[in-house]
Amino acid sequence: MAVVTAVLGDITEQRVDAIVNAANNAMRGGGGVDGAIHRAGGPAVLEDCIARFPYGLATGDAGWTTGGALPAPWVIHTVGPNHRAGERDRSLLESCYRRSLAVADELGVHSIAFPLISAGVYGWPLDDAIAAAIETIDAVDTNVDDVRLVARDPEIFERISARLAEQP
């Protein structure tokens, strides 16, 4: 069973086996976490995205690329639902965490860092994004034993920490 912890910091600086990218469907980089990961990972991440995902990736799915220049050797890309655009099916958000952990297991990953998927520019309500992440990760049977939920914002970090403290 994975141990989930909250981390205040930059996901691109996490020393883990894999970091998760909250990507868009095109898989060609973007803003927010996606842009930060592509910038920090360098051109190798984009080149791998183009080679592995020539037609992009469906919402709720996940796949991997090299980590390029990142400390993590792997990036697991997942496409969260865009709440602001009307994609409000929570099962798609949960699928992002399940699929990311399945890909992590395929890669032999034991430590992974997630952002809060869809909680940024895609506008998923923050408390539900936190709950979906923690509940889904807790329910997945995985070989990953170290799961980090990384937040750059101290208030979001505190909210994640508080929710984790409520877990049995």
Rank of each mutant, 00 (worst) to 15 (best):
L93Q: 03
P125Y: 06
R84C: 02
A129D: 03
Y122W: 13
T136V: 12
E94C: 10
C96N: 09
I112M: 08
D128K: 10
V103E: 12
H83K: 07
V79N: 10
G86D: 08
G86R: 08
H77R: 10
C96V: 07
R90N: 02
A133I: 01
A104T: 07
G86T: 10
G123A: 07
G108F: 11
F114N: 00
S111H: 11
I112F: 07
T78N: 09
Y122P: 11
A113Y: 06
T136G: 12
V109Q: 11
T136D: 11
E106T: 14
A131I: 06
S118G: 06
G80N: 10
L92Q: 14
R84F: 12
L126D: 09
I137K: 01
I112W: 05
E135W: 03
E135D: 15
W124L: 08
T136A: 11
D138P: 01
E106R: 14
A129Q: 09
S100G: 06
T136Q: 07
S118R: 07
H83T: 00
V109H: 05
A119E: 07
E106H: 12
A102K: 12
A113C: 05
S100N: 07
T78Y: 05
V144Q: 00
I134S: 06
D145R: 14
A132K: 00
L107Y: 02
P125K: 11
G80V: 02
Y122I: 08
R90F: 09
D128Q: 14
I134L: 11
V144Y: 00
T142G: 09
G108W: 08
I137Y: 04
S95P: 10
I117E: 04
T136R: 09
G123S: 13
D128N: 02
R88I: 13
I117K: 07
P81W: 06
P81I: 12
I76D: 01
